[in-house]
């Protein structure tokens, strides 16, 4: 294995890792607000990307506008799901909400199949696929583009959480819901905003990754890797989600290089079990262990 090839494999892993990170972030945003897991995150990402693609196919929209359409669709979908379904189950247990989002993921995937068929479609990319030579290494612009785009989005999110009123409210709710309510934060607004924001992050991830893994009703399955990434980083921690995603992407690519065939596909899951057992709060999560 040459160094050039190794660098390429790592960069490629960082690119898919950025997508896992974005999905993990969107899961964590909802988790922090409502303490529930959104199993339909991947399918919401898929639907928004499909809507953007349909706009592209029907109106010949340029790619930046496709992204806008996808984001708008995601925002609408996130808002609707929260308002029409999740809010009615607010008294239910976490398990119930889990099943609801699970049902939702089935519904959305089946609906996508009925509207767009279960076929796979090529998706236009902002970035080219042919390699560029950077000194001693070659990298694909599409990988760099995905990494750059994701990092930009992460910075924007960090700014939003740090400096805006909404971001502060969301952090307050994540820390202590009752205290936040007493301080005058509208928890319901934060719920809504979290679902919308998570869906939007998902849609951007979808538009970035669709040229690589193609657009199809099953592309939402990428969310499983998002779960793993979020756990690796420590569920609830946004920086953890980023690190977990990147780490997962790179490891997933390095494992087939050196490990025997029998074990290489299990690496992400063995890693997840190991992290949970040794350090349940993840790499960057706050330690919240139980005593037994």
């Amino acid at each position: 294995m040459t160094t050039t090839a190794l660098v390429h494999v790592v960069v490629s892993g960082l690119a898919t890792g950025s997508i896992y990170a974005l999905v993990a972030i969107s899961l964590v945003i909802i988790y922090n607000a409502t303490r529930t897991l959104n199993f339909a995150q991947g399918e919401m990402l898929m639907i928004s990307t499909f809507v953007g693609w349909s706009a592209h196919a029907a109106l010949r929209l340029p790619l930046p506008l496709v992204l806008v359409v996808a984001v708008a669709a995601a925002a609408g979908l996130g808002w609707l799901v929260e308002r029409l379904i999740i809010r009615h189950a607010i008294a239910a247990t976490h398990f119930d909400v889990l099943i609801i989002t699970l049902g939702l993921s089935l519904v959305l995937r089946a609906a996508a199949g009925l509207v767009w068929t279960h076929d796979e479609f090529p998706f236009p990319s902002f970035f080219g696929g042919r390699p560029v030579v950077l000194g001693p290494v070659r990298v694909a612009p599409v990988s760099l583009g995905i990494i750059g785009g994701s990092l930009g989005l992460m910075l924007a999110l960090a700014a939003l959480f740090r400096w805006t009123r909404l971001g502060r409210a969301m952090r307050a709710v994540a820390q202590n819901q009752r205290a936040a309510r007493l301080m005058g934060v509208s928890v319901e607004r934060v719920y809504s905003a979290s679902w919308v924001l998570a869906a939007v992050v998902g849609a951007i991830a979808g538009v970035l990754i669709a040229p690589v893994i193609f657009l199809s009703s099953k592309m939402g399955l990428v969310a499983i890797n998002g779960f793993t990434a979020a756990v690796l980083g420590g569920f609830g921690s946004l920086p953890g989600a980023v690190v977990g995603g990147m780490l997962l992407g790179v490891l997933e690519n390095l494992a087939p290089l050196w490990l025997p065939a029998g074990i290489k596909h299990s690496v992400p899951f063995l890693l997840m079990i190991a992290i949970l057992v040794l350090r349940p709060s993840g790499m960057l999560g706050r330690v919240r262990q139980r005593k037994v």
Binding site: M1, H8, G13, L221, E252, N253, L257
Partner: peptide, 27 residues
């Protein structure tokens, strides 16, 4: 449902084959 095949292709390239069989599904 793989997301990235760069490692597999890198390893195969290192074996220097003249012919590479693709036994996969479309995606």
């Amino acid at each position: 449902g793989v997301t990235d095949v760069s490692a597999q292709i890198a390893k195969l390239q290192a074996a220097k084959p003249e012919v590479l069989f693709l036994v996969l599904v479309p995606g």
